[in-house]
Amino acid sequence: MPMVEARGVQKYFHHLHVLRGVDLDVERGEVVVILGASGSGKTTFLRCLNHLEKIDGGRITVNGHLMGYLERDGHLVEQKERLVARQRAEIGMVFQRFNLFPHMTALENVIEAPIRVKGRDRRSALARGRELLAKVGLAEKADVYPHQLSGGQQQRVAIARALAMDPALMLFDEPTSALDPELVGEVLKAMRQLAEEGMTMIVVTHEVGFAREVAHRAVLMDAGCILEEGPPAEFFTRPQHPRTKQFLSSIL
């Protein structure tokens, strides 16, 4: 059973048809990079995967469970908020703008959800939190507030925060796009380490180097559809679709 199964996902923003039937399977331990021009629907698709956006058609299952909906007499019925929240707790998400909680220290950011959502006791959450901060190379920044950290450091705290929930799947929404160029490397390094540990990851990014070296599969989205997918080695060297060739030549 794949970790993520998306079938014919449709999404409208009012009259704008942003997702026109997206199909994507992601296996356990697989790293998938989604590429595409802005407005192609890649971020929206990622947000549908953890039900931050409701879908208007198709179905998404994560870890074998229908995401955000219940099936009743062949219809999809929206699930109770509490149950959606429980499903989201299994999926880590890293945002373009970090979205750290500014009124909490780095460590407090990391332990908040394990304590409040998972009911972990404070002491073990603190120990695990420090461990995760050390893992992303920020052990000494545990008691520092987000505004005292650089963008790259904030994004690494955000990764630690998501990992603290022991997710089965990690979603990355352009994790390096808001960073100064010199800070991109440290975030990619943390992500690469995560991939090597076997985490299932779906990454929306423009970092072709990361896609080539870390991803198992690259996917190109255009106008709300998946146009082409394949192993990075082929995807980047022998693209089939003319739109893919055009996109790759514009970013390489």
Partner: peptide
Amino acid sequence: GQMEAAKALGMTY
């Protein structure tokens, strides 16, 4: 983004 980050961590509204 604050509410979204909280929700993505499994928090209820």
